[in-house]
Design a protein around this nucleic acid. Sequence first.
RNA 1: GGCCACGUGGCGGAGUGGUGACGCAACGGUCUGCAAAACCGUGAACCCCGGUUCAAUUCCGGGCGUGGCCUCCA
Length: 436
Amino acid sequence: MVLRLHNTLTRDKVDFAPLDPKNVRMYVCGPTVYDYAHIGNARPAIVFDVLFRLLRHSYGDAHVTFVRNITDVDDKINARAAEEKISIADLTTRTAAQYQADVQALGCLPPTHEPRATHYIGQMIAMVERLVASGHAYAAQGHVLFDVESKSDYGKLSRRSINEMLAGARVEVAPYKKNTMDFVLWKPSDADIPGWESPWGRGRPGWHLECSAMSESLLGETFDIHGGGIDLQFPHHENEIAQSECAHGGHPFAKVWMHNGFLQVEGEKMSKSLGNFFTIRELLDDWPGEVLRLNMLRTHYRQPIDWTAHSLKESWKILERWYDDAGAMASPRLGEKFLAALADDLNTPQALAELHQETPEAVAGGLSLLGFSVMSESIAAKPELDATSINHAIAARTAARAAKDFKESDRIRDELLAKGIVLKDGAGGTTWEVKR
RNA sequence: GGCCACGUGGCGGAGUGGUGACGCAACGGUCUGCAAAACCGUGAACCCCGGUUCAAUUCCGGGCGUGGCCUCCA
């Protein structure tokens, strides 16, 4: 099976050939931990978890290194901690733990490494020093700025020239910048916000720098795949490339760049003012995690997705049926067409369509590879009633039906329905599921 | 204003230069005390206008619409 991936850098689909098949390396931008993660944040987590699983399947679990960082130093964090009158450490620790619990509930494996930015300050300072020494960065008024003019191919990922950017620029015009597009590598900190001693005084890193330093430490100068949301393409990823390549003597950074599409909710941009802003946690109150996961995978990762309650209901129904078919299978296997669809740039909608045509064994195998490993129990575990009392009621109803007391049997059925339990009379007896 | 995506049946959503993916819903049937479920079956689409071509939903140009980035929002 040849894995093909769409590379944003070249805008085409290429055969994936790892630099080292014994250690396939992937980096994905993780959350800035100042608030609950929202459903848009869940998309890259799920998409690249599927890729992680596929790579592990292809190269072996021990031969894939996946890094997803946690940004725990940021001005939004500082502002939020001040608002809530709690310490920055408390805020970031709490929020990071919530994020990890949320994505786990969505069926995501823990990454190989989940580095925190604050643990890599030394590496960041060292990288800035190299950039200054090689003429790609300059210090000015306590800041250190990257000189975009010093890199001839700056803009290659987002495909825009410095002049084009300037034409539409609304960036802060700071008098100490040589070029308006120059971005901050290091900035000074007042006494009341986090800061570290550096050759340029007490300060903190610029956002883009963090990912460059952490990927360098954990994956090396050049690695295979870098992922993230399409909105990060510029400026974040563009600047990561600039910093890393210049700090590494021009050696290439990530070979393949992958970007997931944006998410809308009920046809509109998700925003707090529109009232359609959903955190992962809120959705988990109403929907099983694997339903959210399936709903995400029913659209190709590069396409925009419209997140709707209607679609979630459909996902629930599909998943429940698959669990009925495959839940008890002891010998899962993988269908060839299913695998081929996944290998074709992670075409999960196609892969799911193939699953609809598959045997129960292949459904079980396919679901498992996609991260739906908690078969059947998880959805059934949702109702307030316990299984024992439901089964008790079913037995009473079966007895009433045998006695042709349909008034009583219908009463029991309606009573369960009112509690959200739907009965299904099949050839092998009566089963139940949670009403959607 | 600049750059860039996307627009497929009632809905979701793949894909393709020529035989109407797939799922949900709907409709018909089987089954059932009834209903649901399950199973079998049916109909239904490629934003608009040009161009290229024997042939375009698929390629090219324009238009319209939606969205993203250019403001450290995935």
